[in-house]
Design a protein around this nucleic acid. Structure first.
Lengths: 346, 346
DNA sequence: TTGTATGCGTTATCAT
DNA sequence: ATGATAACGCATACAA
């Protein structure tokens, strides 16, 4: 590997001059400038960023800790981060905890892995990253980032539970509000809901949005129309009958997957989605556009969450005053009108 | 940030002694050892890996260049890489080219982006990565890695077209062979196929596997049973009639998505999958298990490709003699028996 | 306009 | 068992 010292010797100038020329500091004569630049090209000089980092005491890199790359929410968030980082000329050091592969579907109730996270954060700090973004696979409160961390940290798709570590989350409440408002606008008054798991923050916020939409449309909230699901297709299927038999004309499924289960049961009962019964989902999973008819749903703004997380990180690095005092940034969903909602027949 | 020098001063010893103790070099007395370790803990000492890297002239890091994080094949491959890297104690510097977002679905026919790739490779080399893994989104020949690169490079899910840069690819031929052999074993002799795009290497290898399975089962290859699709659901749908009307009893769809289109058309024609017509797919996309009946298919070994790519990289870094002289590593698919194939009625 | 010298935090050599 | 010192490649204050 060519170094500036070798370049200097080859050109018969000092390292300082080479360094100045390479960094466009000016002060060098056009003649030596050309000579050095030419030699740099010929000798295929590549700057050693590691040495530069040591000298400059910064790395322009941030550590990204992902709970599990293979969970569908993560890649889009990373994509958003990388886009913003490219714009800001920052690089990413990726840590994939592989939590799902290691602990199955149960890790997020426990805290066994907090110790692992601390270890990874220490490693990243050793590598002199300037900040850390933690990407959760399922939105929830996560306190795996030590409060006394000496560099900025941001929680993407989860709640840090402290304003010192900003949290970037989905605006589930507003997303649900839009979906259910649409049902109301189409004349539905008997609206059932199949929720996600009770302990989920997504579920709680979506339920609040559901209730606010009912209230704003002067529709009574009937607890009997509120079935508890578990996010899986089967729980959509198994909760359909109770709702239909109570006479609902529309069902708000808190995710697209459960909506698939509802479609299945409705088909068995000879009921047509979008005509006899209206359905809306949540998440805009790829499959939902293949449902027959395609499902009206709302996008999870995963990319935007990543982008925002990175933006907030850049603000932290610049010691900017952040706009959200509470440290919670809600990123809006995008409503997707498709074919699964019909006008209600009076 | 605490440094070795500060530790040394606090303990009244030299930096050399501190360094030796911190790295378990031995030679220090138990007394000073304890003193230093205690101080390190108290002062929250974190080693500066950047300085260490500069001194040691290595970084134990590799650069990973992904064509686009949001394409389904990429995250699993990265997952495999991170798993192997964790075992080998290497870290990952991630570069997301975002090719799909930037150029839509056409980039892989052009070479416009080769210049970008070269730039990213230079950046990564500046950061002193010890090797580079390039992850393609669709298997094809890609010559975006300069041949004169000074560090090891590996092509994951694509062909580098040179033995110097090992290529890790899916064993499409064998995967297709197993699928079609299964159809033959169930008594099918009139087997149609809906291919992917003609210029795709996946398509060509799968076709070879298809033909070998026919040959081994003494079934004539009828070119009229070979319909050209384009990987999209619609092309499965639109090619179904021609096949059915010619009397095939089974269809090999070269991906699960097109198989979905075949299901659609079959349902319209009142034909039952797994009874009237047997279908097999390819890729094991998540949706395929929700098809009714669930689709018999084969997994794309994406995770294994990443893992293998990283393993090969470690071999390169250790200057090992690699097993595959041609530099092409074929990773096996895993056959998935579900419900879409029935025995043929004579 | 150019060169000298110093230091970033670490490891390693060679004394003591 | 411990310490003084050089070196890794670079940027920079200051001198020339």
């Amino acid at each position: 590997m060519t170094t500036i010292k070798e370049l200097a010797k080859a050109c018969g100038v000092s390292v300082a001059t080479v360094s100045n020329i390479l960094n466009n500091k000016g002060g060098a004569s056009e003649e030596t400038k050309q000579k050095v630049l030419k030699a740099a090209k010929e000798m295929n000089y590549t700057p050693n960023i590691v040495a530069k980092n040591l000298k400059m005491r910064n790395t322009r890199s941030i550590g990204v800790i992902a709970e599990d790359m293979t969970i569908f929410s993560i890649p889009d968030i990373i994509d958003g981060i990388t886009q913003q980082c490219e714009e800001a000329d920052y690089h990413i050091l990726l840590t994939n905890l592989r939590l799902f592969k290691k602990h199955e579907d149960t890790y997020y109730h426990k805290q066994d892995y907090y110790e692992d996270v601390h270890k990874e954060i220490r490693k990243l700090q050793s590598k002199q990253v300037e900040g850390i973004i933690y990407i959760s696979a399922h939105e929830r409160v996560i306190k795996c980032i030590p409060e006394d961390i000496r560099i900025p940290a941001v929680m993407a798709y989860g709640y840090s539970d402290t304003a010192k570590i900003p949290s970037i989350v989905v605006d589930d409440e507003e997303g649900a509000y839009q979906l259910v408002s649409h049902l109301a606008a189409m004349g539905h008054k008997q609206i059932g809901v199949i929720t996600g798991k009770k302990d989920s923050l997504h579920m709680q916020a979506r339920l609040e949005g559901f209730q606010r939409a009912l209230f704003d449309n002067s529709i009574l909230f009937n607890p009997k129309f509120c079935m508890t699901g578990d996010w899986n297709r089967e729980s959509g299927y198994s909760n359909t009958d109770a709702l239909i038999d109570q006479g609902v004309t529309a069902i708000f499924c808190m995710n697209d997957v459960m909506a698939g289960g509802v479609y299945d049961r409705l088909e068995e009962r000879g009921l047509k989605v979008g005509e006899d019964i209206s359905i809306v989902g949540f998440d805009n999973r790829e499959v939902s556009s293949y449902y027959k008819p395609p499902l009206t749903t709302t996008t999870l703004p995963l990319h935007d969450i990543g982008y925002k997380a990175s933006e907030v990180m850049m603000g932290l690095l610049a010691h900017e005053e952040l706009p959200e005092k509470e440290g919670i940034y809600k990123v809006p969903c995008e409503f997707l009108l498709r074919k699964s909602v019909g006008e209600v027949n009076e």
